[in-house]
């Protein structure tokens, strides 16, 4: 078999099971639960650029638009009936208020015709100003519970907050990517925002959250998700 045909049969997404529920990791960084028609995105950090600009660092004012474009594409693909934004949807409490009108319209367009949940995050502890959608602390669905910050010892938790990323080394080269981190009973979502960095899953911040032997990092490639087992991962 030649290389090309092998690549063709490799799926672009990765299917996983969390506490018995099936979900699909999309290379965009979104999670889709087909049984519920539910799309989950985490840590959008909208208006991060303008948040920095207030302190004199003029990051491009296009981060919100870039994130919404990607969100729009993934919504168009899965056509979810429900969307959960898993906290830190805005980079700070004033983010929704600062959002330029055109971006707000864009977001409203994505929200219309589906149920939308804003989960509270540490960056946005209050509901976003002037936006529809339900404001919640956490959401339980079947055997799963969705909240922003992971808590220890909970089965079936899907959380965000930590921006997991992973690093591998092959042939003297180091590759670093954001990832879904999952050990079968817990899943931590990658940050979806266009200006959000990643923290290595082997960092102390993740201590106690995963059963190491069962941990898989679903690293995000250009248009594919790569499942990488824990023993191949490198710190920092």
């Amino acid at each position: 078999m030649n290389v090309m045909s092998r690549i063709d049969v490799v799926p672009r997404t990765a299917e996983i099971t969390v506490a018995g529920e099936c979900a699909v990791c999309d290379p965009s960084g979104a999670l889709f639960l087909p049984a519920d028609g539910l799309l989950v995105v985490s840590d959008l950090h909208l208006e991060k650029g303008s948040s920095y600009a207030r302190r004199g660092s003029f990051l491009p004012p296009y981060d919100t638009l870039a994130t919404l474009h990607r969100l729009g594409a993934v919504i168009a693909h899965y056509r979810p009936s429900m969307v959960v934004s898993l906290g830190d949807s805005f980079h700070d409490g004033g983010g929704a208020g600062r959002m330029p009108e055109a971006f707000r319209e864009h977001l409203l367009g994505l929200m219309s015709g589906r149920e939308w949940f804003w989960v509270a995050g540490n960056h946005d502890p209050a509901p976003p100003e002037g936006l529809p959608g339900r404001w919640i602390d956490e959401l339980a669905l079947g055997s799963l519970v969705f909240r922003h910050e992971p808590t220890s010892g909970v089965e079936g938790e899907i959380a965000g907050h930590l921006h997991p990323g992973a690093r591998i080394v092959r042939r003297g080269r180091s590759v670093r990517r954001a990832c879904f981190a999952c050990d079968g009973s817990r899943l931590i979502m990658p940050a979806f925002g266009s200006l959000t960095g990643a923290l290595n899953v082997l960092d102390r911040a993740f201590a106690g959250l995963f059963l190491h032997e069962a941990l898989t990092a679903y690293m995000m490639g250009k248009d594919r998700v790569y499942p990488i087992s824990a023993d191949l991962l490198r710190p920092a």
Binding site: I7, I168, R170, R171, R173, V175, R177, T216, M219, G221, K222, R224, Y226, P227, I228, S229, L232
Partner: peptide
Amino acid sequence: ANESLLGEAAETL
């Protein structure tokens, strides 16, 4: 070549 390195690592798995 980063993508293919990732592919290789996934292949190992």
